[in-house]
């Protein structure tokens, strides 16, 4: 198992303006796992994801991604990233956005059509991104991350602001990617999305509060809803 780990984090500490944002975070994610990163806003989810991408200046700790140091040049077309606010060009069409990022990643042109179908945006290919709704824009951002079928996807709240049908469709897409061997780290503050993951990391105030499966979470807290389970877990820890 350790050889095929997609993510290996050891005693990661991040300090921002003298406040500890991540405190001694350690975990290992085997390849092909769909891992949910849950926690209230401000718990350090985005910081952790940025650390995995090598975008975050860290105080101490080791972060190894696909056998390489986080942020290494060799990883730059093996990891797909969706930031919380959609990082897309509003003054370009959906197609122009995808084609530009495809050329940066040196990905074949027909891959653009594949990812467009994956996020169900084919009919908006020629629309300017600035004219799309927030949810559609988020899906353009996701489509860019899917270009070139990276081995690891780091998705920061990809379903925020989407309607339930779309959220279900995207989680089905994530599960399909995972069963094809892609490792996914998906953050959310919607606890109900926990049910869609194979494994959950619960983050609170920069620390891992729990590392378990959705079934274990409900069992341990003796609750029936994930919202209730999370509240129970937080109250139990203080």
């Amino acid at each position: 198992m350790p050889e095929s780990a997609a993510i290996r984090v050891e005693s990661l500490n991040v300090v921002r303006s003298e406040t500890a944002v991540l405190r001694d975070v350690s975990f290992v994610v085997p390849a092909g796992q769909l891992l949910g990163l849950l926690g209230p806003s401000g718990s350090g989810k985005t910081t952790l994801m940025r650390a995995l991408l090598g975008l975050q200046i860290v105080a101490s700790g080791d972060t190894e991604i696909l056998g390489d140091r986080a942020g290494a040049v060799a990883l730059r077309n093996r990891v797909g990233y969706v930031s919380q606010s959609p990082a897309v060009y509003g003054d370009l069409t959906v197609m122009e956005n995808l084609r530009y990022f495809a050329s940066i990643l040196d990905v074949a042109r027909d891959d653009v059509d594949r990812v467009l179908a994956d996020v169900d945006l084919e009919r908006y290919a020629r629309s300017l991104v600035s004219r799309l709704s927030g949810g559609e824009r988020a899906r353009v951002s996701l489509a860019i991350a899917l270009l070139g079928a990276p081995e690891l996807l780091i998705l920061d709240e990809p379903t925020v602001g989407l309607d339930p049908v779309l959220r279900r469709d995207l989680w089905t897409l994530f599960a399909r990617q995972a069963s094809a061997g892609t490792t996914l780290l998906v953050s959310s503050h919607v606890m109900d999305e926990a049910a869609r993951c194979e494994r959950l990391l619960l983050l609170r105030e920069g620390q891992i509060l729990a590392d378990l499966t959705p079934a274990e979470l409900l069992e341990r807290t003796r609750t029936s809803s994930y919202d209730a389970a999370f509240v129970a877990l937080i109250e139990g820890s203080t």
């Binding site: 991408l53 090598g54 975008l55 040049v73 730059r76 077309n77 990891v79 990233y81 930031s83 606010s85 959609p86 990082a87 897309v88 060009y89 509003g90 990022f101 940066i104 990643l105 040196d106 860019i144």
Partner: peptide, 13 residues
Amino acid sequence: TSGTLERLLTMPL
């Protein structure tokens, strides 16, 4: 500010 630069820097640019 839009995050596109950060995204590009996670890519081979």
